[in-house]
């Protein structure tokens, strides 16, 4: 059992969530309410990682994060280390790959809030921030939960993009999914099986927890 790989995967999922979730809340709410003509294009853009092969996404990210790119160059100057094949680069890649998993549930949740309820918040004299915190965010809670679970579970299981952008550097970019692949390549099916089981248990626990919370919320709503 490669505990380092497991903790790296959990750290990657945690960082991805911490960065992506607030941005996804803002983007999901905006996409749910905007009448901008650019909306379908932006929706298509956010959904792109779902339909592109991981190798394609990984290739473009590698190009975008590499030392020759402005981003990679700026990062290397600021931190003295390259972005590609580093944990930081992996976080950037993971955030981008997970955009559809975070934004889409939140967009649907904010879109499901009745127009009348949003307008009632304005008529009650609530500021935008008060209306968001007291009315919209609590009502979009199932979406926040879905986005969290999907992003977390997908990050744990992500393989192709991680391999392309991070390679397989132990303690830096070797996540548990890569470690399983490594062990299988080395015919160490025992270790691969243990790690696969660990990943399965963690993923199942995460998804089950989301269903329990969702049921509790919906149960409260039905009572």
């Amino acid at each position: 059992m490669d505990w380092t790989a497991l903790s790296l995967s959990l750290a990657l999922a945690g960082w991805t969530l911490a960065i992506l979730l607030p941005l996804a809340v803002v983007a999901g709410r905006w996409l749910a309410s905007t009448r901008s003509r650019s909306r379908p294009w932006l929706e298509a853009l956010t959904a792109l990682p779902l339909v592109l092969p991981p190798t394609v996404v990984g290739f473009y990210l590698l190009v975008a994060l590499g030392a020759q790119s402005p981003l990679g160059d700026a990062f290397a100057r600021a931190f003295g280390a390259p972005l590609a094949f580093s944990f930081a680069g992996l976080v950037v890649a993971s955030v981008i790959v997970n955009i559809p998993f975070a934004v889409q549930p939140l967009q649907r949740a904010f879109g499901a809030i009745p127009h009348e309820v949003r307008e009632a918040a304005q008529c009650c004299g609530l500021s935008r921030w008060q209306a968001f915190l007291r009315i919209e965010l609590p009502l979009a809670w199932p979406g926040v939960l879905s986005a969290t679970v999907l992003t977390f579970a997908h990050t744990l299981g992500e393989f192709g993009v991680v391999l392309m952008v991070g390679g397989s550097i132990p303690g830096e970019t070797k996540t548990i999914a890569i470690a399983i692949y490594d062990r299988v390549q080395a015919f160490d099916t025992g270790a691969a099986g243990t790690m696969a089981l660990a990943l399965l248990v963690v993923s199942f626990a995460t998804v089950a927890l989301s269903f329990v919370l969702s049921e509790r919320w919906l149960g409260g709503a039905r009572r």
Partner: peptide, 21 residues
């Protein structure tokens, strides 16, 4: 003036009550 600054009370057709409160 934005809605929140107008001295109004508004009851819409389906009331628009906040369902979670």
């Amino acid at each position: 003036k934005p809605t929140r600054e107008r001295p109004i009370g508004y009851v819409s057709q389906h009331y628009g009550l906040f369902p979670h409160l």
